[in-house]
Design a protein around this nucleic acid. Structure first.
Length: 311
RNA sequence: GGGUAGGUGGCGGAGUGGUCAAUCGCAUCAGACUGUAAAUCUGACGGCCUGACGGCCUACGGGGGUUCGAAUCCCUCCCUGCCCA
């Protein structure tokens, strides 16, 4: 049975790619490894936080043991001090894709950062205009209303479609409009090359909630090894790759923000845990609205047995 | 028992005679998303009707009163925090 699936997939789909997506804590990583083992795949993570080094606990990074010998790409490879964007991810993922395919293996993209996945599959097109941090700094001081008017003058068409109250969006739009390169638009197709098999894990709300709660509690009070608070402390300490500011820790997501607040005495440990759970639940919902819109071809499954048909 | 502060929408918390279905924050629901995406942002949020303008009903602990008009003033009852006994 196992080898049957393996042979079939390998023969038919040279160049094809599997995508595993879903909200946090839905069990993507585990599923990806299972599939990888079955069909001879290797995994490219699409997670905007797992790319960083020394952030294993808070990002729920897969452990060496859990990888079960399957190669993983684009994880745990960059200093948390560094700025990272979709483009960085795209480069990493594309390189890995090539490499995996060249060796006759099947790439499995697995992650919860919808934006990254969509950028990779081509369902979202990102203009090749680099961020201009100097300009951004200047624009950030302005009121959104003013930013909107600026954009209207620079590119009325774009201004019509943009969210006029979102400063971050406006600033980027101005940045693009100010550069000389022609503006690009979204491709519109979610799978232009037709080579992606998209599988999503969708658990009942209650079950997902349970999983998130358990996950956070295990982070804070792990059955074995060191916990999240320890990890955050280490990131804060001015050693090697640590020495992050509180502000930077806030930027790295709720798993770092709330422990940072706790370490500063701003909230209790209980409050910290509560908020992390809550934010994760809210995040999970946001993820789903993204997937619905930008990865509509996703085949949604509830458990592993449903996947056999798809493969 | 005496004194004192208070009881407002799921929660926190404004409002102290009309412009109050009630600022705001949180939660909730829906949504947006062109190099920060675990980010950033938007809308709805008492009930009913309407496509919309708008209309109707029920509401600021319970009851009663003053007033053209009360969440806001008075009386009374119930409840909670704090201080003294």
């Amino acid at each position: 049975m196992k080898s049957q699936i393996k042979n079939k997939t390998l023969q038919q789909n040279s160049g094809q790619v599997i995508i595993i997506l879903g909200p946090t804590a839905s069990g993507k990583s585990e599923l990806a490894v299972k599939i990888a083992r079955k069909i001879g795949g290797e995994i490219i993570s699409a997670d905007s936080r797992q790319i960083y080094k020394n952030m294993k606990i808070g990002t729920g990074l897969i452990t060496k043991k859990e990888m079960r010998g399957i190669k993983h790409y684009c994880i745990n490879y960059i200093s948390p001090k560094k700025r990272y964007t979709v483009i960085n991810f795209k480069k990493c993922a594309e390189k890995a894709l090539k490499d995996i395919l060249k060796r006759g293996k099947i790439p499995i993209i697995c992650g919860g950062t919808g934006f990254y996945i969509s950028a990779l599959t081509g369902s979202i097109n990102i203009p090749e205009i680099k961020p201009n941090w100097q300009l951004r700094k200047k624009l950030e001081k302005m009121r959104t209303e003013k930013l909107f008017n600026m954009l209207k003058k620079l590119n009325p068409e774009r201004a019509q479609k943009i969210d006029p109250k979102n400063p971050r969006r406006l600033i980027r739009a101005i940045e693009i409009a100010k550069s000389s390169s022609p503006p690009t638009r979204r491709v519109g197709e979610t799978d232009p090359t037709g080579r992606f098999l998209q599988i999503g894990i969708k658990l009942p709300e209650k079950e997902l909630k349970k999983r998130i709660e358990k996950r956070i509690k295990n982070m804070v009070n792990p059955p074995t090894g060191r916990g999240l608070i320890n990890e955050v402390k280490k990131l804060k300490n001015p050693t090697a790759d640590g020495g992050l500011s509180w502000k930077r820790l806030y930027e790295l997501g709720f798993e770092y923000k709330y422990p940072a607040m706790f370490l500063q005495g701003k909230i209790s440990k209980q409050e910290m845990t509560k908020r992390m759970i809550l934010k994760n639940l809210q995040y999970a919902k946001r993820q789903m609205t993204w997937f619905k819109k930008y990865q509509p071809e996703t085949k949604w499954i509830k458990n592993y047995s449903e996947i056999k048909k798809l493969l």
